[in-house]
Design a protein around this nucleic acid. Structure first.
Lengths: 260, 260
DNA sequence: TAGTGGTCTAGACCACATC
DNA sequence: ATGTGGTCTAGACCACTAC
């Protein structure tokens, strides 16, 4: 690599070559998930490069989500996580009746992880994005139920549910974390809103700085940003939930008829 | 910033402060989409920092997708793109009958962009991921129809469709880019497979290095990775398509009944 | 030719993890 | 105390764009 200052660059570069070598070693299995890479200083010496150049290579691998740096410990090969899959059936009555943990808990347990949900319930004025989907005027009072979903104490997903205050007032939906065995859709059903359709608007993006911090999202991992609207038998929306999920553990799996 | 070498770091750092200032200027509108930021050297002088430190700040903004660097020209504020939305109805008979452009073309035209599709049709042995979804043995001959979708000559999406060779042999599906006015599902219908259900498996991830190059994906933009399976009236899968879409322009929008 | 971003060097000190 | 990654400096040359 000492030739780099003289040789033409462009198609290639030292840091790319180093990244390529490490990437290949990882995909070939010479470094296993969880393994520690040599230190930046060691790699620099091995390649006859400056430490900054090695850092460029590692930065590239981090962007790709292949490795993860831990301050003071080292750079580690990321494990390929198993995915939790969420689908249409999570809203069905059958799911509600048979499953006390909810779809998140069920998925987590199936993967041998310990689920745990934190809730924070407040009353706010509906933001535009919520009002639009609920068909109400922005500023109308709504309940906001913010749920953080953890697996083994690692926050993997946030879901913030909104419904008009006038609908939920007096119901556990308005102030209680415990919604009983039939969960959120059981309570809405008791209020006369049986979920029959859902609308799911899905996009993906990089996490905001705040999301990355609060959810401890590793480098190079996008989030799935999902707006979910619950719709009743009269085709009226009665509930909106925004999910933000780490894309490296979550996937969506829908099967649906082409026509209604 | 000259104090940085002496002041404790941790909660903050020079490059973070510079990134913060630029980020705020962008979100406040002092830099508009398309505007050029000051050069790295100018920013370094303004902040009394080394150029590398400014580059760290810009790297952070690039990861967030806020700015885009162009070699030899400068660093520019990225425009917030409008999204194309793809939903369930793209598979409906009504859509097929009324729309010659297909869902991609329709969306592009609606946004005032010029659509264009490149196709490459080959015959291959089914990869495991395809075979699994089609319910066939890996290695079975399948047609592979690789479509590149462009808007204003910018590649935004790839869709690779697979179907068993024995099914499509002799049909335009086997070798022709032109599938007639009713498109791909019209041809499958003619072969006795009317699409009645779809399964859509959705995940998001950073693009591979190759995808980023071939699709010219800017920094900090993830892709939506979608496996679509077409299912006929007998509940048999007959077609699989893998879509890879730039997440900064594509979104998915499904509405569906909770029960069949 | 001038100005831009891209890459690289050879150091330095700080903050964190581990023993 | 040692080793790790995190941040920073003050330079240098290369590659690309625009004039």
């Amino acid at each position: 690599m000492t030739s780099s200052a003289r040789a033409p660059r462009g198609a290639t570069s030292d840091y790319r070559a180093i990244a390529h070598e490490l990437r290949e070693a990882i995909t070939a299995g010479r470094y296993q998930p969880g393994d520690k890479l040599p230190s930046e200083r060691a790699l620099a010496e091995q390649h006859g490069a400056a430490r900054n150049t090695v850092r460029e290579a590692i930065a590239a691998l981090r962007r790709e989500g292949l490795v993860s740096a831990e301050h003071g410990r080292g750079v580690f090969v990321r494990a390929k996580p198993r995915w939790m899959r969420f689908g249409r059936r999570r809203y069905s009555a059958a799911m509600r009746a048979t499953n006390e943990l909810g779809p998140f808990g069920a998925e987590a347990v199936a993967q041998g992880r310990r689920p745990h949900v934190d809730s924070r319930i407040t009353r706010i004025e509906a933001p535009a994005e919520v009002a639009e989907r609920l068909g109400i005027v922005p500023g109308t009072l709504v309940v906001q139920r913010e749920n953080w979903y953890f697996a083994d104490d690692e926050p993997l997903q946030i879901g913030i549910t909104y419904a008009t205050w006038s609908l939920v007032e007096g119901n556990p939906l308005a102030d209680s974390a415990d919604l009983g065995p039939e969960g959120i859709y059981g309570q809405f059903a008791a209020l006369g809103h049986v979920i029959t359709h859902v609308r799911e608007e899905i996009s993906a993006r990089m996490p905001t700085r705040e999301e990355a911090q609060r959810m401890t999202i590793p480098d190079g991992v996008p989030v799935i940003d999902l707006w979910h609207t619950g719709i009743n038998a009269d085709r009226e929306p009665f509930e909106v939930t925004r999910f933000v999920m780490r894309a490296d553990f979550a996937a969506l799996d829908y099967d649906m008829p082409v026509e209604d």
